[in-house]
Design a protein around this nucleic acid. Structure first.
Lengths: 265, 265
DNA sequence: CATTCGTCTGCATGTTTGTGCATGATTTGT
DNA sequence: ACAAATCATGCACAAACATGCAGACGAATG
């Protein structure tokens, strides 16, 4: 008896910690595990497996069920949902927008929810540098080893969700991004691009001045509307990314200003 | 006996330092080591191997497990993987930590998952300014109208999850926060505070120099362990926030250095 | 050369941890 | 509702553990 146990124990190269790690991996892969199955695989009794599962459940990794355990859906679900259907309008816009980006470039992502989606939509291993004044963009790119992130410093504007102010202006002045995704609040053929606050508009004006190419990404409700503070003329915009069902009439007017229209699918 | 031992000792090229280096390489290669296996290989007793492993664990190289040790990936793992672990414990720590904050202060929140929890735990309408090099902290405070947020600019370190580098150092130099919550990777009575990378340590050193009062918040696994790069001595820390079940012996040693211990509930 | 000190080692001691098994309690499927 | 499967709990045991101790050795000191 004791011999059997000793034999198993020493022959088995797996520490409890390793074993639990393997169970974790299996949980994310399959979503569920069976106690009996694991016991057979590791060559130990189901009791020990149950102990492991109990600990993992206590750590919040999985949830115990009769016969085994299922993965705690919280961390997994969003990734799956994201890759599958349910792609929002802004995500479709983002997918169209990122096609304008090339590896090796210095790209500026302005503050805004759309630009956060663009950050998330950047292709794997594209290898570029992203400058931004948006903490949310930085967080979205935190786990991307192929993307160097440079954050503009300064006072955070809660309304805009980005860094604004004098120091930010100076910092942007010192860099020459190849491409800039401008977070516009309004875009109109006559009024041009507009923002909701004076400080935001001032920052975006500096962006337009500093960046080699400007891309505006606009959902339908932003087309043909004005905003209190002007940023730039339509002529300053290189590309305008719009939704698939954007108003054709508006687009025709805009295209006449020389801006290249990109339609999302 | 003595002859045997001497023979072994000289025959094996293993001074403790050499031996530990070999164990390090083994850890990198295999990710784990078995105490009995190493003892057989080096021709010494398991006791000495265990001593080595204990030292390596204290240095943060590996994590001791029953039967041997596994490579310590935790400190070097990207921050997003760490973020969901131990949330409950860190929230309790955060609740204790925010009691050190007073309205109207300029508080610096260093990068780290614990400090994100501290940001979330700041009382409603406390009314203060938070400076940070962590985009995640900034995002957590985005909807807090009573808190002014100042973000340090510069290159984002994906491992640390915060802005590091020369410009960040200069920016911190220019401000005088009343209070700083330092994201320490390791804290030990002799080695002091430690970080996992040189750049991170340099930034934290500047924080210690610039800030009026330093608060270190440490989960249990960080107590009594060392890290490759030193930040500061224990004496530089004003308050140390620890978990309710932190090792009393360690705390007694730490308290003797003059640091004020705050226990979470 | 003798001695003193610090380090490293192995051993003895008692403690902790991981494991399997027995025993009821609980849950599931039919 | 009943049998089978699964589970939680307590127990026993061996492996692995921390700790204190003493001997051996090298280096520094007189």
């Amino acid at each position: 008896m004791s011999l059997e146990r000793k034999e198993r124990f020493t022959a088995n190269t797996a520490f409890p910690a390793d074993r639990q790690q393997l169970i974790r991996e299996r949980l994310v892969r399959d979503g569920r595990v069976l106690a009996a199955e694991l016991a057979a695989e590791f060559g130990i009794s189901e009791d020990s497996i149950r102990r492991d599962l109990r600990e993992l459940a206590a750590a919040g990794v999985c949830q115990r069920v009769y016969g085994g355990a299922i993965a705690q859906a919280a961390a997994n679900r969003p990734i799956l949902e994201r890759s599958r259907e349910n792609i929002g309008r802004k995500q479709k816009l983002a997918l169209a927008a990122v096609r304008l980006v090339q590896g090796g470039q210095l790209v500026f992502l302005d503050a805004g929810t759309t630009n956060v989606e663009i950050a998330k939509a950047l292709p794997e291993d594209i290898g570029l540098t992203v400058a931004t004044n948006s903490p949310a963009v930085a967080v979205a790119l935190m786990d991307r080893d192929d993307i160097e992130v440079v954050l503009i410093g300064g006072r955070l504007d809660h309304q805009v969700g980005g860094i604004l102010g004098g120091q930010a202006l100076v910092d942007v002045q010192r860099m020459r991004p190849d491409l800039c995704f401008l977070g516009v609040c309004a875009i109109d053929i006559e009024a041009g691009l507009g923002a909701g606050t004076a400080e935001d508009a001032a920052f975006k004006r500096q962006l337009v001045a500093s960046c080699g190419a400007i891309v505006a990404v606009a959902t339908n409700e932003k087309l043909g509307t004005g905003a209190p503070f002007a940023i730039a003329d339509i002529q300053d915009v290189g590309h305008l990314v719009v939704e698939a069902d954007a108003d054709a009439n508006q687009l025709a007017h805009l295209a006449r200003s020389g801006v290249e229209i990109v339609r999302a699918s």
